[in-house]
Design a protein around this nucleic acid. Structure first.
Lengths: 221, 221
DNA sequence: CGGGCGATTGATTGCCTTCAAACGTGGTGG
DNA sequence: CCACCACGTTTGAAGGCAATCAATCGCCCG
């Protein structure tokens, strides 16, 4: 097994190619995926777990007749593909070109059964995802179109505005399938926010938060 | 600490008042709650974890302006209130009169850090909830009213129809807030299913699956 | 028998989707 | 280097589905 002790910044250089969980850093393989390339598919054997180095990844589920629901976007630093079962429960694709580290799940599973801090980190990650999905269920079940888009922007901005600039790695179609809307409705919401001076859109993928307070109000409307 | 070794059916009688996680059975206190009574509220300190003995419990989140999203229903045997943080992330209420067992979270946390099987059971539970929320996100984001109600009935029926009879512990309002719909729309869907001979409704809380295949078709429409 | 609450049904409204067209931009080949 | 094409985005118009508003029904309990 390729695990090794990990001690803070001392391992910073090699950490680039590893995934840290609790006390353990798992050395992995660096991979590059191109725009819209599939990383793994639902029901495939779940052999690997991934961390994003650069770019963005979307995870999603499909309904029987092909409708797509995006469940999350994963950016630099985020882990995904951590399933408990032996098959992936969802599909992952590269939003744009991206670099990932992949680590064998068997290594992580083994470590988790031997090392409590790894087990705890696993639980923490799963629990964080659960919290995110619960919040998202509230958005999908009980919010209008404008509120959903505002919530999305604020979520991407890290909820507390440090920089007011925001680069969207994903298309309007991705945003729509994440928010349970259509491309057109998402686009109209952006346009409306621009008219309200809540944001400005120098380009379709670049958002400037002109008035974050207004966005917060739009979210809870 | 009130944990004790648990060895299968030998402990069946006392298991009534305990919660089993992995190798360990946590002895708890039996509680009774009346219809609509709050069991715990969002942001309250998360002191206890619960198991349902009888009746049903709903867990939910509220938006800033008070709209309610029910995240799950918990029936006999189900656990709820297992949070990682020190506060509950959601609110739990009794759907109808119900009996619960409650166990101190501190006991479970301690056991989890000492016993890998408990830690694993915790992860398994959290992961199952995550899977459920993902599926629910697909329903909320991408399905029409009829499909949502059909999916709800099939989910309650355990997805594979053993008995065709179904007793709904919850009101139309609860179903509506679970599915992101209104009471009226849920009611209309039930009526429509009855007209289609997919179900019959001897009373508003009692559903007979007359044609499960039709329901499956309605779900994916 | 009367009161109250949950459920059903009907009529209308409104929001989001659908359908359709135009716009802009980035990339490619002439 | 420019023209053109493709694709993502925006905008407009019309339609549909679920929400809202409103009234009645039915049942449980007092």
């Amino acid at each position: 097994m390729q695990t090794q002790a990990f001690s803070g910044k001392a391992a910073a250089i090699s950490a680039q190619d590893s995934i840290e969980m609790g006390d353990v850093a798992f050395r992995g393989v660096r991979m590059r995926y191109e725009r819209n390339e599939e990383i793994f598919g639902q029901d495939e054997p779940a052999e690997y777990c991934y961390r994003v180095l650069s770019g963005a990844v979307r995870t999603m589920r499909f309904s029987a007749d092909g409708r797509r629901q995006i469940l999350g976007f994963h950016m630099a630093g985020d882990l995904f593909g951590l399933e408990l079962g032996d098959k992936y429960a969802l599909t992952a694709e590269a939003v744009g070109a991206c670099e990932l580290v992949m680590v064998r799940r068997s290594a992580i599973d083994k470590a988790a059964s031997e090392n409590a801090s790894v087990a705890r980190a696993l639980l923490q990650l799963t629990s964080a995802q659960l919290t995110h999905m619960r919040e998202h269920a509230l958005v999908l079940g009980r919010k209008g179109a404008g509120e959903r888009v505002a919530a999305f922007l604020l979520q991407l901005a890290g909820r507390f505005v440090t920089t007011r600039e925001l680069d969207l790695p994903m298309s309007r179609a991705d945003i729509a399938d994440y928010l349970g809307l259509t491309i057109e409705t998402v686009s109209r919401a952006f346009s409306e926010f621009e008219r309200n001076a809540a944001i400005s859109l120098p380009s379709s993928r670049h958002v400037v938060m002109r008035n974050p307070v207004a966005l917060h109000e739009l979210e809870a409307a």
